[in-house]
Amino acid sequence: MMDEISILHETFDDDVTTSPSPEAEQRARHALQNRITAPAPVRRRLSWWLSIPVAATAAAVVAVVVAGNVNGKGAPGPTTAGPALSAAPVAALPYLKPVSAAQVLENAAWTAEQEAWVNPAPTQFMYVETLEMRNKPGYEQKHPNGTLLPGKAEYRTIQEWNRIDGQVWASKRNGKLEVNHQGQNGGWKAFVPWSQVVKLTSSAVIDAYLEHPEGGVTAEPWALAGQYVLPPDVKAAIFRYLAQQPGVQVNPDAVNLDGRPAIALGEVIEGYLSRELLFDKDTYSLIGDRLVAVNDETAPNSSHHKKGDLLRQVIYRKMIIVDKAGDTD
């Protein structure tokens, strides 16, 4: 694989002057989702890397990007539930020098268990703020499946709010808060019910949930780890579940994410793409995700990807529970 640090240095670009149109954003995300995975034939399964509300007649797609302790500014206030965004854990990690994916994930599980947590009310929101690397809108509209272009791809700040009861979601576009309600104007967004989320406290329960989801909506554990503001015991259980899955490996190539050394942990899908969760090298907090080609491949839509091509890069900046849409702390 080509040098990832070189890729990231070339593609990090803060000169973002325009935002993509809603139509371009939807085409790009749907194209990537449709190429990598097909929707489940019976129940709605959410992909771990995409997020966009769609009409009731369209496929339900929800995205990746939520986790616990990342780049926050202090613990939640008196009316805020969620993980306290604190410094590195004070006690010893289970593995000081992990050498396997299972050991890295056990460290991540242990770190998650150290987070403070207050159960949120149904009317509170999961607030997720990320930096998502994207090609410029004009190019992305023409090449929704395209590799992130070195020197041209740019980071865009994404802010999303999802109410705990699943009935309201919101996002910011060009600085304006847009609030949506389930069923309003025919809109519908898939949520794993919170009553289901809080039960996922062991690998056995996660297996059972994937087979028989509550409410008919599932998300792969990869998606849950990066999409919901999870209770510490649920997040830890997901990491331990992933540690038991075949094919999950530590990527030996160095990754520098947002100025911090990161450990990439992933699995190969479609024979040529590695979907990876990125963990802080010191605290083992989940800090991002990416999608990178590990082999040359011509995709079904005839776009060609070379080994080392970066297709997705996301930094998790802030993931907390807030009282209302628009709140950021």
Rank of each mutant, 00 (worst) to 15 (best):
M2Y: 04
D3P: 03
S6G: 08
S6E: 12
T11N: 07
D13K: 05
D14V: 03
D14T: 05
S19P: 02
P22R: 00
E25F: 11
Q26I: 09
Q26R: 06
Q26D: 12
R29C: 11
A31Y: 01
L32V: 11
Q33N: 11
Q33S: 13
R35S: 15
T37R: 03
T37G: 12
R43W: 12
R44V: 15
R45K: 05
W48P: 06
W49T: 09
T57Y: 12
V66R: 07
A67L: 07
N69K: 01
V70G: 08
N71W: 07
K73I: 12
K73N: 15
A75L: 10
P76G: 05
T79D: 15
A88P: 13
P89A: 14
L93E: 03
Y95G: 03
A102S: 04
A102L: 02
Q103R: 00
L105K: 01
E106H: 05
A108W: 00
A108M: 04
T111R: 11
N119T: 14
P120Y: 01
P120I: 05
P120A: 01
P120F: 00
A121W: 06
Q124P: 05
F125Y: 09
V128Q: 04
E129I: 02
M133P: 00
P137E: 08
P137C: 07
Q141T: 07
T147I: 06
P150A: 03
G151E: 08
K152F: 14
A153P: 03
Y155K: 01
R156Y: 11
Q159L: 09
E160Y: 10
W161C: 02
N162S: 15
D165M: 06
G166H: 05
V168N: 09
K176R: 07
L177V: 07
L177F: 05
W194L: 01
W194N: 10
S195L: 08
Q196S: 15
V198P: 09
S202C: 09
I206C: 02
Y209D: 15
E211L: 10
A219F: 06
L224N: 08
A225G: 12
A225L: 15
L230W: 07
L230G: 08
V234N: 03
A237R: 02
F239D: 07
Q244A: 15
Q244I: 02
V248P: 02
P252E: 11
L257A: 14
D258W: 02
R260K: 01
V268N: 08
Y272K: 00
L273M: 06
S274R: 09
L277D: 11
D280K: 00
D282G: 03
T283C: 08
Y284I: 01
S285E: 14
I287D: 10
L291F: 00
V292M: 07
V292K: 04
D296A: 03
P300K: 01
H304Y: 12
H304Q: 11
K306I: 13
K307L: 14
G308I: 05
R312K: 12
V314K: 00
I315N: 07
Y316K: 01
Y316N: 13
Y316Q: 10
K318N: 13
I321F: 04
V322H: 02
D323G: 15
A325N: 02
D327P: 02
T328A: 13
T328K: 11
